[in-house]
């Protein structure tokens, strides 16, 4: 009898204990999701883009610039593949948004960004803005960028963090995907993170 009670108690405890964190291939989960202070950027339509725009859905974010011919198109093409893969698995309402933040507001205008990001995935959104506002967001994420050598005023390169950031539907910094990126692994990690998040609510 005592053994049965013990078994019952164990079963109950197991049922009530929080779900185990998922085994992830590429993502680094933050020990606890980090709330983000508000920021004031401009989206690809020229409208305000703030913390509120990160809420209500998951967001993959990548930080770069359109004059970047190698790393940025490779990463955005990879993120486009992640979205297409997720599209096969998720209802439209459950899809994450894909965000490209240009850290080069001197050259990247919202109009340019609109055409640029749609090339990689039709629903991708973009944001840029005042350098201080870009910094207000990036410094909370550990995303770095710095202008490097250029011959002329408008001819420079930018060294920038290559990681993809994942925001949760509360607009918190939830996970980071470091390079090298693999679209299939990121998509499957995302589904695990999302399920774990929903089970933990």
């Amino acid at each position: 009898m005592r053994i049965i009670l013990l078994l019952l108690a164990t079963a109950l405890l197991t049922a009530c204990s929080p779900p185990k964190p998922p085994q992830l291939q590429q993502a680094t989960l933050l020990p606890s999701a980090k709330p983000i202070a508000d920021f004031n950027l401009i989206n690809q339509k020229g409208e305000a883009f703030t913390l509120d725009d990160l809420k209500g859905h998951w967001t993959f974010a990548f930080f770069g610039y359109t004059h970047c011919p190698d790393v940025c198109p490779t990463s955005l093409g990879m993120l486009g593949r992640v979205m297409r893969r997720l599209n096969e698995n998720l209802q439209p309402g459950a899809m994450p948004q894909g965000l490209f933040v240009s850290v080069d507001p001197q050259r990247d205008t919202p109009e340019m960004l609109a055409k640029y990001v749609a090339y990689f995935y039709p629903d991708f959104i973009a944001a840029t803005g005042d350098p201080a506002e870009i910094h207000r967001l990036t410094r909370q994420l550990g995303i770095l960028y710095v202008k490097s050598a250029g011959d002329k005023d408008n001819d420079y390169l930018i060294d920038h963090s290559a990681a993809v950031v994942l925001f949760d539907p509360d607009g918190r910094f939830h996970a980071l995907f470091n390079v090298p990126h693999d679209a299939d692994k990121i998509a499957s990690d995302f589904l695990l993170i999302k399920n774990y998040y929903e089970a933990s609510q």
Binding site: T66, H67, P69, P73, L76, M112, K115, Y116, Y119
Partner: peptide, 11 residues
């Protein structure tokens, strides 16, 4: 690589 619209540099 085909340049995305608006991209000024290609690889």
């Amino acid at each position: 690589r085909e340049a995305p619209p608006g991209a000024s540099m290609m690889a």
